[in-house]
Amino acid sequence: MATIPIHYGLLLAALLFVVGLVGVLVRRNILFILMSIEIMLNAAGLAFVVGGARWGRADGQVMVIIILTVAAAEVAVGLALVLRFHGWFKSLDADRASEMRG
């Protein structure tokens, strides 16, 4: 198999992560914020796989499995919160949840 430079893999992971970060910063819809968090977790997993593939070890893939677990738990709780949010505010606008004036 031909070799892929490790730079390109890491750059791709950084690019995907930053796209997800922009999504979190820019969107007001709480559903899209959750999707952007998924993108960021996925990009972190990609970086781990690139690192694992560089040295041909399994450790990177183990970390990706743990990231998958975190993503699954986060999305379950997050989507339950979205349902409650929509039930209370009748909207998906994240700015509505400013009750605590944080």
Binding site: I4, P5, A53, R54
Partner: peptide, 9 residues
């Protein structure tokens, strides 16, 4: 830089 050989884990 280093190459990823794509050896399967």
């Amino acid at each position: 830089n280093a190459g990823i050989s794509g050896s399967v884990v």
